[in-house]
Design a protein around this nucleic acid. Sequence first.
DNA 1: TTCTTGTCACCTAGGTGTTAATAT
DNA 2: ATATTAACACCTAGGTGACAAGAA
Lengths: 219, 219
Amino acid sequence: TVELANKSLWESFDRLNTEMIVTKSGRRMFPTLQLKVDGMVMSSKYVIFVDFVPSDNYRYRYSFHSSSWNQAGKADPVHPQKSYMQPDGVCLGQHWKKTIINFDKLKLTNNTVNKNGHIILNSMHKYLPRIHIVLLPNNNENDHHCYYRTFQFDFTSFYAVTAYQNHRITRLKIASNPFAKGFRDCDPDDCVLEILNHLKNSHWKKSMKTEASILVVKN
Amino acid sequence: TVELANKSLWESFDRLNTEMIVTKSGRRMFPTLQLKVDGMVMSSKYVIFVDFVPSDNYRYRYSFHSSSWNQAGKADPVHPQKSYMQPDGVCLGQHWKKTIINFDKLKLTNNTVNKNGHIILNSMHKYLPRIHIVLLPNNNENDHHCYYRTFQFDFTSFYAVTAYQNHRITRLKIASNPFAKGFRDCDPDDCVLEILNHLKNSHWKKSMKTEASILVVKN
DNA sequence: TTCTTGTCACCTAGGTGTTAATAT
DNA sequence: ATATTAACACCTAGGTGACAAGAA
């Protein structure tokens, strides 16, 4: 099983339609993917990685006066999909179980000739992160299978952008990302509370599917 | 073969008798170990790690009026020796060859109950860093040998201290470590040049053994 | 018009030696 | 006396959105 350690933050963004900045040199995500896993074999080796799949086949545009995202033609051509491996690398089940697994170093870019290891996305397109947990085979000669599971959380989908479109998203990023403290215009704690309260009392959908969709694959 | 990419800086410190701070929470070395390797098999896997061996069996004391280190009794008991693996982990020869191999994240501590992965040293003792390059065996069943080489450079030996003893060492650290810029009292470039010139024109030994001592081991 | 890029002030995070207080 | 510790100001390194300029 996999859970997001910062699920409620993701949900707060999702109610507004999450946006993630992409830049030429690479931009971190916020919120980041923070996993808690369980059910691994303690003494087996695993690697964990993440990739991003297009949510659909459209290009999007943000309408400022209706404050909504609308389809604007077919999707641009996709670029070769790289995946990002969790930096801890190959670790035992007992290691993964006891820590919050962070992907905060992961960077998104719109630079197609990127020489770094960043994830390439198309701006103004919608994506869904996927988490892959791979059980590495033992050195038994008989066992050349590789088992893995893929997890995805619908509420972590986002629009890739080069500049924020929805001002509420900007305000929630400023309120909740420590690196954006310089743009806060009130007491930090009050800011977060104020916005989160506003969300809680708003007319936006309150119940949502928060459990992970699970695909089991064996090859 | 192994070379130090920052050999001349190490030599400048060595002329004054290098000191390295150890703290409870762990302190980086300066200079750091920066390696350039050659002669590896391009397609073979290697790991590289570092450990520290006592230069001798004595405890030391610094005499301020004679500006020298003197023996002050037998060495304190040694603590279990950990080694520090280069963070890149298992890499092919072709990877190691093309980069400068940095150990700048390595930290020294005098904290014997350290819960981090830091190297434990006794303050007021003299140490010599050793570099171990290990060729990992292939998956051939016949080949369970493990080949490695150990390199050491005499001019990288140092005294572990909790506070600097020799004021010239302090000044050279301030002049050459970017993180200590706040303590420079003149133009940074001038500072370095001034001290290095002073070293060059001084009476200290000018010729020294700079090639690595090599031990070849097979088990 | 719509989207992208580069620069900037303002942060976080953490590596420096200094200094004064404390321990041995 | 000598050695160690903790708090501190001052740095490096790099993550923020704002903003103005540029590109499509």
